[in-house]
Amino acid sequence: MASFVFAPGCGPQKADSTDSAGGATDDTTGDEGASAGETTSSSVTTGATDTTGPGTTDGGDSTPTGMSTEGDPEETAGTSDTTGAPAGCPADDPATSAAFKVSLDAWPDRSDEEHLVDSLCDIDAVDVAGAVVITTLTCDVDGVARGAKFEFAVAPEGAVDWQVGQAVAFHSRAKNSEFSGDTALHVTLADDPSRLLVDGRDVWGVGLPVSEDIGPIHREIVMECTADDLGEEKNNELRYSLMSGAELTVWAGSRGSLAIDASRVFAIDLAQSGSICCHGDEERSLIRRVLSE
Protein backbone atom coordinates (compact mmCIF):
# COMPACT_ATOMS: atom_id res chain seq x y z
CA MET A 1 0.00 0.00 0.00
CA ALA A 2 1.15 3.53 -0.71
CA SER A 3 2.27 5.50 2.33
CA PHE A 4 1.58 9.12 3.04
CA VAL A 5 4.33 11.64 2.51
CA PHE A 6 3.95 15.21 3.65
CA ALA A 7 5.61 17.98 1.66
CA PRO A 8 8.88 19.05 3.30
CA GLY A 9 8.58 21.98 5.61
CA CYS A 10 9.30 23.17 9.11
CA GLY A 11 6.53 22.82 11.63
CA PRO A 12 5.39 25.68 13.86
CA GLN A 13 7.46 26.35 16.97
CA LYS A 14 6.59 28.08 20.19
CA ALA A 15 7.36 31.77 20.22
CA ASP A 16 8.98 33.14 23.38
CA SER A 17 7.41 31.34 26.35
CA THR A 18 3.76 31.84 25.50
CA ASP A 19 1.44 28.89 24.73
CA SER A 20 -2.10 29.50 23.59
CA ALA A 21 -4.86 26.95 23.59
CA GLY A 22 -5.58 25.98 20.66
CA GLY A 23 -20.58 30.78 -1.78
CA ALA A 24 -23.25 29.07 -2.94
CA THR A 25 -25.25 26.32 -1.40
CA ASP A 26 -23.93 22.85 -2.05
CA ASP A 27 -26.84 21.68 -4.14
CA THR A 28 -30.40 22.52 -5.05
CA THR A 29 -31.74 20.51 -2.13
CA GLY A 30 -30.02 22.82 0.33
CA ASP A 31 -27.88 19.98 1.70
CA GLU A 32 -24.76 22.09 2.27
CA GLY A 33 -26.87 24.96 3.57
CA ALA A 34 -28.06 23.06 6.64
CA SER A 35 -26.51 24.03 9.95
CA ALA A 36 -27.29 21.20 12.33
CA GLY A 37 -24.64 18.69 13.32
CA GLU A 38 -21.84 18.34 15.81
CA THR A 39 -18.67 20.36 15.64
CA THR A 40 -15.16 19.72 16.90
CA SER A 41 -12.94 22.74 16.66
CA SER A 42 -11.34 25.55 18.56
CA SER A 43 -14.08 27.90 17.43
CA VAL A 44 -17.25 26.79 15.60
CA THR A 45 -20.57 28.54 15.07
CA THR A 46 -23.44 26.91 13.22
CA GLY A 47 -26.30 28.77 11.61
CA ALA A 48 -29.95 27.97 12.11
CA THR A 49 -31.55 27.90 8.68
CA ASP A 50 -30.77 28.17 5.01
CA THR A 51 -30.49 31.78 3.93
CA THR A 52 -30.22 33.56 0.67
CA GLY A 53 -27.15 35.59 -0.06
CA PRO A 54 -24.32 36.16 -2.46
CA GLY A 55 -23.78 33.16 -4.68
CA THR A 56 -20.61 31.12 -4.82
CA THR A 57 -19.57 29.81 -8.18
CA ASP A 58 -16.87 27.36 -9.07
CA GLY A 59 -14.64 28.95 -11.68
CA GLY A 60 -11.42 28.13 -13.47
CA ASP A 61 -8.19 28.33 -11.56
CA SER A 62 -4.59 28.37 -12.63
CA THR A 63 -2.77 29.02 -9.38
CA PRO A 64 -1.21 26.33 -7.19
CA THR A 65 -3.64 26.64 -4.28
CA GLY A 66 -6.71 25.65 -6.31
CA MET A 67 -7.53 23.43 -9.26
CA SER A 68 -6.95 24.32 -12.87
CA THR A 69 -10.16 23.11 -14.48
CA GLU A 70 -13.71 24.42 -14.68
CA GLY A 71 -15.68 23.86 -11.52
CA ASP A 72 -12.66 24.29 -9.28
CA PRO A 73 -12.06 26.87 -6.54
CA GLU A 74 -11.80 30.55 -7.31
CA GLU A 75 -8.96 32.46 -5.72
CA THR A 76 -7.78 35.95 -4.99
CA ALA A 77 -4.07 36.17 -4.27
CA GLY A 78 -2.71 38.56 -1.70
CA THR A 79 -1.82 38.86 1.93
CA SER A 80 -4.00 39.16 5.00
CA ASP A 81 -4.55 42.12 7.31
CA THR A 82 -3.25 40.78 10.60
CA THR A 83 -3.66 43.80 12.83
CA GLY A 84 -3.96 42.71 16.42
CA ALA A 85 -2.69 39.19 15.74
CA PRO A 86 -1.29 37.22 18.69
CA ALA A 87 2.48 36.96 19.02
CA GLY A 88 2.85 33.22 19.66
CA CYS A 89 1.12 30.41 17.76
CA PRO A 90 -1.08 27.75 19.36
CA ALA A 91 0.43 24.30 19.79
CA ASP A 92 -0.18 21.80 16.99
CA ASP A 93 -2.97 19.26 17.36
CA PRO A 94 -1.41 15.80 16.82
CA ALA A 95 -4.75 14.55 15.40
CA THR A 96 -4.34 16.80 12.35
CA SER A 97 -3.70 14.81 9.16
CA ALA A 98 -3.84 16.62 5.81
CA ALA A 99 -1.74 14.16 3.79
CA PHE A 100 -3.27 12.63 0.67
CA LYS A 101 -1.99 10.56 -2.27
CA VAL A 102 -3.17 10.12 -5.86
CA SER A 103 -2.11 7.08 -7.91
CA LEU A 104 -2.65 6.70 -11.67
CA ASP A 105 -2.66 3.28 -13.33
CA ALA A 106 -0.73 3.52 -16.64
CA TRP A 107 -2.13 6.85 -17.80
CA PRO A 108 -0.37 7.99 -21.00
CA ASP A 109 2.21 10.76 -20.53
CA ARG A 110 1.30 11.15 -16.85
CA SER A 111 2.88 9.86 -13.65
CA ASP A 112 1.94 9.94 -9.99
CA GLU A 113 4.57 12.63 -9.43
CA GLU A 114 3.68 14.88 -12.38
CA HIS A 115 0.26 15.10 -14.00
CA LEU A 116 -2.77 17.21 -14.77
CA VAL A 117 -5.99 15.20 -14.65
CA ASP A 118 -9.53 16.30 -15.45
CA SER A 119 -11.71 13.22 -15.93
CA LEU A 120 -15.12 11.75 -15.30
CA CYS A 121 -14.80 8.57 -13.26
CA ASP A 122 -16.90 5.89 -11.58
CA ILE A 123 -16.22 4.81 -8.01
CA ASP A 124 -15.33 1.10 -8.00
CA ALA A 125 -14.44 0.66 -4.33
CA VAL A 126 -14.19 2.52 -1.04
CA ASP A 127 -11.96 0.53 1.31
CA VAL A 128 -10.61 1.20 4.77
CA ALA A 129 -7.20 -0.31 5.54
CA GLY A 130 -6.24 0.46 9.10
CA ALA A 131 -6.36 4.24 9.49
CA VAL A 132 -6.48 4.90 5.73
CA VAL A 133 -9.48 5.16 3.39
CA ILE A 134 -8.79 4.29 -0.26
CA THR A 135 -11.16 5.23 -3.08
CA THR A 136 -10.64 3.34 -6.36
CA LEU A 137 -11.85 4.78 -9.66
CA THR A 138 -12.26 3.86 -13.32
CA CYS A 139 -11.88 6.98 -15.47
CA ASP A 140 -12.55 7.87 -19.07
CA VAL A 141 -9.22 9.02 -20.54
CA ASP A 142 -9.67 9.94 -24.20
CA GLY A 143 -12.21 7.17 -24.62
CA VAL A 144 -10.09 4.56 -22.81
CA ALA A 145 -10.85 3.24 -19.32
CA ARG A 146 -7.98 3.93 -16.91
CA GLY A 147 -7.64 3.18 -13.23
CA ALA A 148 -6.87 5.66 -10.45
CA LYS A 149 -7.17 5.93 -6.70
CA PHE A 150 -6.83 8.50 -3.97
CA GLU A 151 -6.24 7.92 -0.29
CA PHE A 152 -5.92 9.75 3.01
CA ALA A 153 -6.43 9.21 6.73
CA VAL A 154 -9.84 8.24 8.07
CA ALA A 155 -11.51 11.29 9.63
CA PRO A 156 -12.33 11.12 13.35
CA GLU A 157 -15.86 12.34 12.57
CA GLY A 158 -16.86 9.24 10.60
CA ALA A 159 -16.89 7.45 7.25
CA VAL A 160 -16.63 9.26 3.91
CA ASP A 161 -19.90 10.38 2.32
CA TRP A 162 -19.54 8.74 -1.11
CA GLN A 163 -20.08 5.22 -2.33
CA VAL A 164 -19.49 2.60 -5.00
CA GLY A 165 -21.32 3.30 -8.26
CA GLN A 166 -21.32 7.09 -8.03
CA ALA A 167 -19.92 9.11 -10.93
CA VAL A 168 -17.45 11.82 -9.93
CA ALA A 169 -15.49 14.64 -11.54
CA PHE A 170 -11.87 13.89 -10.67
CA HIS A 171 -9.35 16.75 -10.82
CA SER A 172 -5.77 16.15 -9.75
CA ARG A 173 -2.56 18.07 -10.27
CA ALA A 174 1.02 17.27 -9.29
CA LYS A 175 4.01 19.35 -10.33
CA ASN A 176 7.07 20.14 -8.26
CA SER A 177 10.28 22.05 -8.90
CA GLU A 178 13.29 23.16 -6.90
CA PHE A 179 11.55 26.35 -5.78
CA SER A 180 7.88 25.38 -5.52
CA GLY A 181 5.53 22.50 -4.88
CA ASP A 182 2.05 22.11 -6.35
CA THR A 183 -0.11 19.11 -5.53
CA ALA A 184 -3.88 19.37 -5.48
CA LEU A 185 -6.93 17.09 -5.50
CA HIS A 186 -10.53 18.18 -6.08
CA VAL A 187 -13.43 15.71 -6.38
CA THR A 188 -17.13 16.48 -6.83
CA LEU A 189 -20.19 14.56 -7.99
CA ALA A 190 -20.20 14.45 -11.79
CA ASP A 191 -23.84 15.51 -12.13
CA ASP A 192 -23.60 18.17 -9.42
CA PRO A 193 -20.24 20.01 -9.34
CA SER A 194 -21.39 21.98 -6.29
CA ARG A 195 -21.43 18.75 -4.25
CA LEU A 196 -17.89 18.79 -2.89
CA LEU A 197 -16.43 15.45 -1.80
CA VAL A 198 -12.70 16.17 -1.45
CA ASP A 199 -10.38 19.15 -1.67
CA GLY A 200 -6.71 18.66 -0.81
CA ARG A 201 -3.78 21.09 -1.22
CA ASP A 202 -0.06 20.70 -0.69
CA VAL A 203 1.57 23.82 -2.10
CA TRP A 204 4.56 26.01 -1.27
CA GLY A 205 6.55 28.84 -2.78
CA VAL A 206 3.46 30.82 -3.80
CA GLY A 207 1.33 33.59 -2.34
CA LEU A 208 -1.69 32.22 -0.50
CA PRO A 209 -5.11 33.68 -1.36
CA VAL A 210 -6.69 35.93 1.25
CA SER A 211 -10.09 34.48 0.36
CA GLU A 212 -11.51 31.94 -2.07
CA ASP A 213 -14.49 29.71 -2.68
CA ILE A 214 -13.97 25.95 -2.47
CA GLY A 215 -17.24 24.61 -3.85
CA PRO A 216 -19.87 25.61 -1.27
CA ILE A 217 -17.22 26.63 1.29
CA HIS A 218 -15.87 30.16 1.62
CA ARG A 219 -12.32 30.17 3.00
CA GLU A 220 -10.53 33.28 4.26
CA ILE A 221 -7.42 34.21 6.22
CA VAL A 222 -8.40 35.81 9.53
CA MET A 223 -5.05 36.64 11.14
CA GLU A 224 -1.54 35.31 11.65
CA CYS A 225 0.76 34.50 14.54
CA THR A 226 4.53 34.29 14.98
CA ALA A 227 5.78 30.72 14.71
CA ASP A 228 9.48 31.16 15.55
CA ASP A 229 11.70 33.08 17.95
CA LEU A 230 13.00 35.41 15.22
CA GLY A 231 9.54 36.43 14.06
CA GLU A 232 10.27 35.37 10.48
CA GLU A 233 7.84 32.46 10.25
CA LYS A 234 4.09 33.00 10.42
CA ASN A 235 1.07 30.73 10.78
CA ASN A 236 -2.40 31.69 9.55
CA GLU A 237 -5.77 31.34 11.19
CA LEU A 238 -8.42 30.44 8.60
CA ARG A 239 -12.21 30.69 8.65
CA TYR A 240 -14.33 28.23 6.64
CA SER A 241 -18.02 29.03 6.28
CA LEU A 242 -21.21 28.03 4.47
CA MET A 243 -24.06 30.29 3.39
CA SER A 244 -26.20 28.64 6.10
CA GLY A 245 -24.09 30.45 8.70
CA ALA A 246 -22.15 27.32 9.73
CA GLU A 247 -18.59 28.38 10.45
CA LEU A 248 -15.27 26.87 11.52
CA THR A 249 -12.16 28.82 12.52
CA VAL A 250 -8.87 26.92 12.84
CA TRP A 251 -5.20 27.76 13.21
CA ALA A 252 -2.57 26.09 11.08
CA GLY A 253 -1.69 22.83 12.79
CA SER A 254 -5.23 22.03 13.88
CA ARG A 255 -8.49 20.56 12.63
CA GLY A 256 -12.25 20.58 13.07
CA SER A 257 -15.58 20.00 11.33
CA LEU A 258 -17.97 22.25 9.47
CA ALA A 259 -21.61 21.14 9.79
CA ILE A 260 -23.52 20.46 6.56
CA ASP A 261 -26.66 19.01 8.15
CA ALA A 262 -27.61 16.79 11.07
CA SER A 263 -25.72 13.79 9.73
CA ARG A 264 -22.92 15.18 7.53
CA VAL A 265 -19.93 17.46 8.02
CA PHE A 266 -16.86 18.64 6.18
CA ALA A 267 -13.86 17.30 8.10
CA ILE A 268 -11.13 19.93 7.72
CA ASP A 269 -7.48 19.35 8.57
CA LEU A 270 -5.21 22.38 8.22
CA ALA A 271 -1.67 21.09 8.72
CA GLN A 272 0.03 24.28 7.53
CA SER A 273 -0.87 27.74 6.26
CA GLY A 274 1.55 30.65 6.30
CA SER A 275 5.20 31.45 5.66
CA ILE A 276 7.49 28.64 6.69
CA CYS A 277 11.23 27.96 6.57
CA CYS A 278 12.77 28.39 3.12
CA HIS A 279 9.58 27.63 1.22
CA GLY A 280 7.92 31.03 1.31
CA ASP A 281 4.16 30.67 1.71
CA GLU A 282 2.90 27.15 2.22
CA GLU A 283 -0.45 25.48 2.70
CA ARG A 284 -1.28 21.86 3.42
CA SER A 285 -4.96 21.20 3.92
CA LEU A 286 -7.54 18.46 3.40
CA ILE A 287 -11.31 18.79 3.27
CA ARG A 288 -13.49 15.69 2.92
CA ARG A 289 -17.24 15.22 3.16
CA VAL A 290 -18.03 12.64 5.87
CA LEU A 291 -20.93 11.12 7.73
CA SER A 292 -20.86 12.37 11.32
CA GLU A 293 -21.28 9.70 13.99
Rank of each mutant, 00 (worst) to 15 (best):
G37C: 02
A95T: 15
A2Q: 13
V187T: 07
G215M: 10
G165K: 08
E32G: 11
D26M: 12
T183R: 15
G88R: 08
S211R: 07
T83Y: 08
V160Q: 05
A48R: 02
K101C: 06
S103T: 15
D81E: 12
A48L: 01
A87N: 14
G9E: 02
N235I: 11
V5C: 05
G60I: 10
I221Q: 15
S119L: 14
V160M: 07
I217C: 11
A21T: 08
L248F: 06
D58N: 14
L286M: 09
G165S: 06
S80K: 09
D182C: 03
E32K: 04
T135P: 04
A85S: 15
S254K: 02
T18Y: 05
A267H: 14
R239L: 14
S244L: 03
A34F: 03
T63P: 00
I217V: 15
C139T: 04
D16H: 03
F100G: 05
D229H: 12
P64N: 08
L208W: 09
L185G: 09
V154M: 08
E224Q: 14
L258Y: 01
W107H: 11
G11V: 12
A184V: 13
S177V: 09
P12W: 06
E233Q: 15
K234I: 12
S20T: 11
D50F: 05
G143M: 05
F152M: 04
D16I: 05
L242W: 05
R173A: 02
I123A: 06
G37W: 03
R146M: 06
T69G: 07
V203L: 08
H186Y: 15
D140G: 02
E113V: 06
V154S: 03
G256S: 03
Q272I: 02
V206K: 08
T188P: 04
G22Y: 06
G22M: 02
Q166A: 13
N176Y: 02
V133K: 04
A77Q: 15
H218V: 12
L238R: 13
A85W: 09
F150V: 03
V290G: 06
A262I: 00
